[in-house]
C-alpha cells in the first residue's frame, strides 16, 4: 500500500484506486499479449510490398529488430521495428523482442540508407527493453542505443513512429524518435518496466501494478503528457482479435502523416523535430526570494486534468476523479519544493 500522507505534505494524487489499477494492468497485459500482431505481421498487412533487409555489416543479423523497404499505398518507405514471436520457438529466436547492440546498428544502417535514398521512415515499437546480458554489454548496447537516438534526431528524412505494444525504456526510444509518434490504444510506454520500477522503488516486484499506475504508461496518458501525438483505436477486444482491421487503421494514419510530412522543407522538419524533444518535460525556476515559478505556468494543472480524463476513460467514463484540486496543486506544490531556497 502507498503510505498515508500527512497533513503537512501537499496532496498530489490519491493512491490509485484498486479498480483503476486493475484497468491499467489490463492494458499492460494487452500490450504484452503474445497473440498481438507484431511488426512483420503488421507491415505485411499495411504494405503492398515488403523487402526485408538483414544485418548490421559489423557482427550479425539481430532477429529482434527487423527492417527493409516497403510500399504503403504507393508510397515507398523504409520500415524498422522490434520483432517478437507469436509462438515459443519463434519468440526464443527473436529473443522476446529484446535487441542486442547489433540490432540497433542494423537500424542505424537502414536509417542512413533511407536518408540517402530520400525515403521516409516508419518505425514500429514493441520491446520489453534492450537485452541486458553480458553479450549485450560487451558489444556496447548503451552506445548503440545512444547513437541510434542521436542519428534519428538528425536524420534528414521524415520519421513516423508507432508504439504498437510495449515501449520499454531506452531500448524502445532507440527506434522511436519521430516527427510524429502514434500509439495503438492498448500500447504502453515507460521509462522502466513496471516490474523494474517496483523492485527498485518499492523493493518488491509485487508492487508492479502500483508502479504501472504511478508511471502513467497507458497510451491515453502518454498522449496527455505530449510524449505521443495520437492514439490509434484498436478493434473491439484488442488488436489481437482482428490484426487485419488493426493494420487497416494504422495504414490510414501512417499514410496521412507521411503525406503531411512529405512536403516539409528539410530544415523546418529537423528544427520541428529538435523542438519536439527540446520541450519535453517541465521544471520550475526558483526566485531570489519567495516561491519557485513554473517555467510554463498552468501546464501541470492542465496536464493533470487531461491525465485524469484519460484514466477515467480506462474505467468506463464515469470513474472517480483522482485530483479534484488540480488547479491549486500547481501553486501549493511549487511553493513547497521552493522552501529553503
Amino acid at each position: 500500500m502507498v503510505e498515508q500522507r500527512t497533513a503537512a505534505s501537499v496532496a498530489v494524487v490519491e493512491p490509485t484506486p484498486d479498480e483503476l489499477r486493475s484497468a491499467i494492468w489490463a492494458r499492460v497485459q494487452q500490450a504484452r499479449n503474445v497473440k498481438r500482431p507484431h511488426t512483420l505481421e503488421l507491415i505485411q498487412s499495411i504494405a503492398t510490398e515488403v523487402i526485408e533487409l538483414h544485418g548490421d555489416r559489423l557482427f550479425r543479423d539481430d532477429p529482434a529488430i527487423v527492417g527493409g523497404f516497403c510500399r504503403i499505398d504507393g508510397r515507398r518507405a523504409v520500415f524498422v521495428g522490434h520483432q517478437k514471436g507469436a509462438e515459443t520457438d519463434e519468440n526464443i529466436r527473436r529473443n522476446f523482442g529484446m535487441p542486442h547492440p547489433e540490432g540497433y546498428r542494423k537500424a542505424i544502417r537502414l536509417f542512413r540508407l533511407a536518408e540517402r535514398l530520400g525515403l521516409p521512415i516508419v518505425t514500429f515499437i514493441d520491446t520489453p527493453g534492450a537485452f541486458p546480458g553480458p553479450a549485450s554489454e560487451e558489444r556496447g548496447v548503451a552506445e548503440a542505443i545512444a547513437r541510434a537516438i542521436m542519428t534519428m534526431c538528425g536524420l534528414r528524412t521524415p520519421i513516423v513512429t508507432v508504439i504498437t505494444g510495449e515501449g520499454g525504456s531506452g531500448g524502445a526510444l532507440a527506434l522511436a524518435v519521430g516527427d510524429v509518434v502514434l500509439a495503438l490504444e492498448n500500447s504502453i510506454y515507460s521509462v522502466i518496466s513496471p516490474e523494474g520500477a517496483a523492485s527498485i522503488l518499492w523493493r518488491s516486484a509485487e508492487y508492479s501494478q502500483q508502479a504501472a499506475a504511478a508511471m502513467r504508461l497507458t497510451a491515453a496518458e502518454q498522449l496527455a503528457l505530449g510524449v505521443i501525438d495520437e492514439v490509434v483505436p484498436e478493434p473491439p477486444g484488442g488488436a489481437h482479435t482482428n490484426p487485419e482491421e488493426t493494420a487497416r487503421r494504422l495504414r490510414a494514419r501512417i499514410a496521412a502523416h507521411l503525406d503531411a510530412l512529405a512536403g516539409r522543407e528539410r530544415k523546418a522538419l529537423l528544427d520541428a523535430r529538435y523542438a519536439r524533444y527540446r520541450n519535453m518535460g517541465e521544471f520550475a525556476i526558483a526566485a531570489e526570494s519567495g516561491e519557485a515559478q513554473p517555467q510554463r505556468p498552468g501546464l501541470r494543472a492542465r496536464i493533470r486534468r487531461v491525465l485524469d480524463a484519460g484514466r477515467n476513460a480506462l474505467v468506463g467514463g464515469e470513474g472517480e476523479t483522482n485530483d479534484p484540486t488540480a488547479d491549486s496543486t500547481d501553486e501549493a506544490d511549487v511553493q513547497r519544493t521552493g522552501e529553503g531556497s
Binding site: 502507498v2 503510505e3 500522507r5 505534505s9 501537499v10 498530489v12 494524487v13 493512491p15 520500477a197 522503488l201 518499492w202 502500483q210 508502479a211 504511478a214 508511471m215 502513467r216 503528457l225 518535460g281 517541465e282 521544471f283 520550475a284 525556476i285 526558483a286 526566485a287 519557485a292 513554473p294 501541470r300 496536464i303 493533470r304 491525465l307 483522482n322 485530483d323 496543486t329 506544490d333 511549487v334 513547497r336 519544493t337 521552493g338 522552501e339 529553503g340 531556497s341
Partner: peptide, 30 residues
Amino acid sequence: NLESVDMLGFVDQKPYSERLAAAHAATGSR
C-alpha cells in the same frame, strides 16, 4: 535556480515532491 516539478503526481513509498525536498535538504543542491 532550475527545480524539478512533479508532473505525474508520482507516489511510490513517498511522493516524488517529498523526495525532492529531502534531497534538497540533505545536499543543499536543487
